[in-house]
Design a protein around this nucleic acid. Structure first.
Length: 575
RNA sequence: GGGCCGAUAGCUCAGUGGAUUAGAGCACUAGUCUUCGGAACUAGGUGUCGGGGGUUCGAAUCCCUCUCGGCCCGCCA
């Protein structure tokens, strides 16, 4: 499978090579800046220096020596100073790009690069007995988008929700339930009650030390498989997952597995033994097992009291994932504060020989803040929970729908508000580099113009609106399209941009950067907006031109919907 | 003390060596429209690319250094 832009690029490369003037390994092509009236450039600096020729001279000689063959996607070749510029053939590019979009449909832009390879993506990872808050939303949304992107690149992707369902704090959770009783509410309300019980227990513990012992006993009981402790734990897990699932459904999050930390408990003694055997770690005088690798700070694998820590479980997790899935890479979508932890983890599993030939990647992301840059935290009392965040966004979107489109029926209004509100939350997380902190700014998030989810959805709805009108006319009979008629500058710009989705997808995967897709979507909407303004479709001058433009509108809708789907954003037909 | 991340227009961000003017959006101003959906389109302008060195024919981009902000540095996750 090879898309128009790739073929264009290969033709250009072959044409340069065929002149015999430049060795193939010196041909490095680049995409010109938007203000340059060309689609591909060969900056000849390096080659000219190697060959001992003045750059403009070489570019001019190449331009003179190249003439595109019949049927070539190359339309024009010309020298501009030290650059050799290639332009696409306006008519053939239209036929090629629109043909590809029609043929691939929702899968337009996808590749088979990852065929036969597996990728494990570790994302979301909520804590049991806790509500999901804005701190989890980033991992969840970025992670799912990376899953979508790698699938579209042809990889077999295994999404794993690494639940925080283990650790010492669980003793306190169980003890608090035993002492105060189980919450009776459902969903996030029940989680809120669990959090309250936990806090209450912690407070009482400060004054009554016997509660501390009780919590420790339950922690131990859970680790030793005590049936009663285990039953309460399981109840908490089920409750949390059920509440989380509601959020996942709204956000379009789907996992292949949800092996929590507890899943690895049985493997830990062996893993600890292997860290010692491989001499990746050693036993300290106090009985703890520690490692010091690659000049990284020392870290603990087993506590001096014999207990394990999350590092222990993470090592076991790597071992399990590699033996179970044979992935070529494992991607961790976890916030940037754990960067050191992952460097240490990757170092020790390599030292242990677990990860031969497996690429281990940590995708760090920034924190969520208030509009004025303050961190959100439970302690400060300004925490925002995922469910209420989505509800609020949808409610605000609903108000806009009522104002803009009151004639829609109730069910459609609700569906549109959900798509727009949730889309805004998702886009707010994806439109920029994940390393940056993002702020929870309602004004910007739910902006209906500019670089916003709503603007993208609106652009799609406009495409559909035109097509719907055609379908409503006499059964949608459309004159056969002569795509070569799409030579208007606005048409050409839109076409050429549609041609860039395949490469945008590759770049997004290579850089683990959903915002590359977001930017492609945004530019698509922009170019469509210009086209929409300058090129009448239904009232085009001739039936042939009308048909050609309809094909362009349809292709734009298909490609834009596909791009939004990668981001997990729904595209309503009307809004 | 060591390490990681960030710093580009008033604000939010793209730009990870190449084309005499560093790009978008928001905000501001002025327009377009007998509308295929105005949740649109057009025009208008601001930048010591945090500072300073260096490499290069060429640096926002690569190297060094400093400043500021955030975060991390074995028995939490």
């Amino acid at each position: 499978m090879s898309y128009a832009l790739e073929r264009f690029s290969e033709e250009a490369r072959a044409a340069i090579a065929a002149t015999g003037m430049v060795p193939a390994e010196m041909i490095e092509l680049a995409t010109p800046k938007p203000n340059i009236p060309a689609d591909l450039a060969f900056p000849v600096f390096r080659a000219a220096r190697e060959l001992g020729v003045a750059p403009p001279r070489l570019a001019a000689d190449l331009a003179a020596a190249i003439s595109p063959g019949p049927g070539s996607l190359i339309g024009a070749v010309e020298a501009a100073g030290p650059f050799l510029n290639f332009s696409m053939h306006p008519e053939r590019i239209a036929e090629a790009v629109l043909g590809e979009i029609a043929a691939h449909g929702a899968a337009y832009g996808h590749h088979a690069d990852g065929a036969g390879k597996r990728v494990v993506v570790d994302y979301s990872a909520p804590n049991i007995a806790r509500r999901m808050h804005v701190g989890h939303i980033r991992s969840t949304i970025i992670g799912q988008t990376l899953v979508n992107i790698f699938r579209a690149l042809g990889y077999q992707v295994i999404g794993d929700n690494h639940l925080g369902d283990w650790g010492t704090q669980f003793g306190t959770v169980i003890a608090s339930i035993m002492r105060y009783g189980r919450p009776q509410a459902e969903g996030e309300a029940a989680m809120e009650q669990l959090e309250a019980l936990y806090a209450r227990y912690n407070n009482e513990m400060k004054e009554r030390s016997e509660l501390e012992d009780e919590a420790r006993r339950w922690s131990l009981a859970l680790e030793q498989g005590d049936p009663e402790a285990r039953a309460i734990w399981q109840w908490c897990v089920d409750l949390t997952l059920k509440a989380a699932q509601k959020n996942y459904d709204r956000l379009g999050i789907v996992f292949d597995h949800a092996y929590g930390e507890s899943f690895y408990e049985a493997m830990l003694p062996e893993v600890i033994a292997e860290t010692l055997h491989s001499e990746a770690a050693y036993r300290d005088a106090d009985g703890s097992v520690v490692a010091e690798l690659d000049k990284l700070p020392k870290f603990i694998i087993q506590r001096s009291d014999g207990g394990t820590v999350y590092m222990t479980r993470d090592i076991a997790t790597v071992k399990f994932r590699i033996s179970e899935f044979q992935p070529s890479k494992i991607v961790y979508v976890v916030d940037g504060r754990q960067e050191l932890h992952f460097r240490q983890l990757f170092a020790i599993v390599r030292a242990m020989g677990y990860a031969e030939g497996v690429e281990l990647v940590h995708i760090p992301f920034g924190i969520v803040t208030t509009p004025d840059g303050q961190p959100l935290s439970t302690r400060k009392g300004n925490m925002v929970y995922l469910e209420s965040l989505l509800d609020e966004a949808v409610a605000r979107a609903r108000a806009v729908v009522e104002r803009k489109n009151p004639e829609l029926d109730e069910a459609e209004k609700a569906a549109v508000a959900e798509a727009v509100g949730v889309g805004a939350v998702i886009y707010n997380d994806l439109y920029q580099d994940p390393r940056r902190n993002i702020s929870l700014d309602w004004e910007r998030m739910l902006a209906t113009e500019g670089n916003s989810a709503t603007y993208l959805q609106y652009s799609y709805a406009r495409c559909r609106s035109i097509l719907r009108r055609v379908e409503e006319e006499r059964g949608g009979a459309v004159a056969p399209a002569n795509l070569a008629l799409l030579t208007h500058p606005a048409e050409q710009r839109l076409l050429k941009h549609l041609a860039r989705l395949p490469e945008a997808l590759r770049e997004a995967g290579a850089r683990y950067a959903p915002f590359v897709i977001a930017e492609w979507c945004y530019t698509t909407a922009r170019e469509f907006g210009v086209f929409f303004e300058q090129c009448p479709v239904l009232k085009a001058d001739t039936p042939e031109l009308r048909a050609a433009r309809l094909a362009l509108v349809e292709a734009t809708g298909t490609a834009l919907k596909g791009g939004l789907a990668l981001l997990g954003i729904k595209a309503p037909e009307r809004m």
